[in-house]
């Protein structure tokens, strides 16, 4: 399959008064054309920092990208996103790559009408005239399911309900027909019936516009429903990557296994205990020198305290960063 994005050994650190926060310690992944990659992990595991590093959205200082490569394979050959200057990255952002955030209210400009915000993007990236851009903004709002789009285009973000605001931000993100959409917990703040509407919308847009999607969430249920492949992050590292069925039915990394065990079994009433993961994620102020999950792992051996495990192949397309992964044969 054809890759559209390939990130290798991304290292991002925050230089703060308390010390150096090792937010990303060598993150590698890729995105195929037309696929949906689900990214899961608990809060603080580095999901947002990974995506924001790619698009230069982190304030520097304190953030510093200290290593890695992020290739975007566009029409004119590969482009290293990390090496782009300000003008270069703004052409990508909102052009080739669209970003959908959890909190639409802070992502949209509060003092500009929604239609005007979309129009400005169209004028800037596609060189449209203002009048044409406005018409297209209205069409876009219609396309993402906002009723009375002509009227709503002239309204401000705070005049929208939570779900409608999320739709408006999606309209903005897809305005220039991006190749890649990065959705960072886009439904976390929404109620489940509205979440279902938004998931439905993004999946429809994805297939109609032929986009690739990176969908960040902490909800494994959402991932099971939307992702082709899943990447699991823990404490600034990618611990497992797999096609969605492999991840749920044949997880290899002890963290993934425990995470799945901690979920209530929907549909299975009765009294069973959830398997809890004792302890908490590590302090990122310490530079990793061994497996980051070692404190909470039931299967850790001496090696796990001595070395950082690298990704290794479990089966085609399925990798885990663990010295003793579960495999098909149950061999560790």
């Amino acid at each position: 399959m054809d890759k559209i994005l390939e990130v290798t050994d991304l290292i991002t650190r925050f230089h703060t008064f308390d010390g150096v926060v090792h937010a990303l310690s060598g993150v590698s992944f890729h995105l195929y054309r037309g696929e949906t990659l689900g990214v899961v992990g608990e809060s603080g595991s580095g999901k947002s920092v990974t995506m924001m590093s790619l698009l230069h959205l982190l304030a520097a200082p304190p953030a510093r990208i200290e290593g890695g490569r992020a290739l975007y394979f566009g029409d004119n050959g590969p482009l290293d996103l990390l090496g782009l200057d300000t003008a270069g990255i703004s052409r990508i952002r909102g052009g080739r790559m669209g970003f959908i955030f959890q909190d639409a209210l802070s992502a949209l400009n509060p003092v500009m009408t929604v239609g005007r915000q979309i129009s400005e993007t169209l004028v800037e990236h596609l060189g449209m005239t203002t009048a044409r851009a406005w018409n297209r903004s209205v069409q876009l709002l219609d396309y993402v399911g906002i009723p009375e789009p002509g009227k709503r285009a002239a309204a401000y973000p705070h005049q929208f309900s939570g779900g409608m605001r999320q739709r408006a931000m999606i309209a903005l993100a897809i305005a220039c027909q991006p190749r890649v959409i990065i959705a960072d917990e886009p439904t976390t703040a929404l109620d489940v019936t509205v979440q279902a509407q938004i998931i439905d919308l993004v999946l429809r847009l994805k297939s109609e516009m032929n986009m690739s999607v990176i969908w960040i969430t902490h909800d494994l249920g959402v991932v099971a429903g939307i992702a082709d492949r899943v990447m699991v992050m823990y404490a600034g590292t990618v611990v497992e990557t797999a096609p969605v069925d492999d991840l749920f039915y044949r997880p290899a990394h002890p963290y993934t296994i425990k995470l799945l065990g901690a979920l209530p079994k929907i549909g299975q009433a009765g009294n069973y205990r959830l398997e809890s993961i004792d302890g908490t994620p590590p302090d990122l102020l310490e530079k990793p020198s061994h497996c980051q999950f070692v404190w909470r792992c039931d299967h850790a051996g001496d090696r796990c305290w001595q070395d950082i495990p690298q990704n290794r192949e479990i089966s085609p397309g399925h990798q885990a960063a663990c010295f003793f992964p579960f495999t098909d044969k149950g061999v560790r």
């Binding site: 489940v192 019936t193 979440q195 279902a196 909800d219 494994l220 249920g221 959402v222 991932v223 099971a224 429903g225 969605v244 069925d245 749920f248 039915y249 799945l260 979920l263 929907i266 549909g267």
Partner: peptide, 8 residues
Amino acid sequence: SAIPIPDP
């Protein structure tokens, strides 16, 4: 029907 189920 809208609860996401962690089972693909």
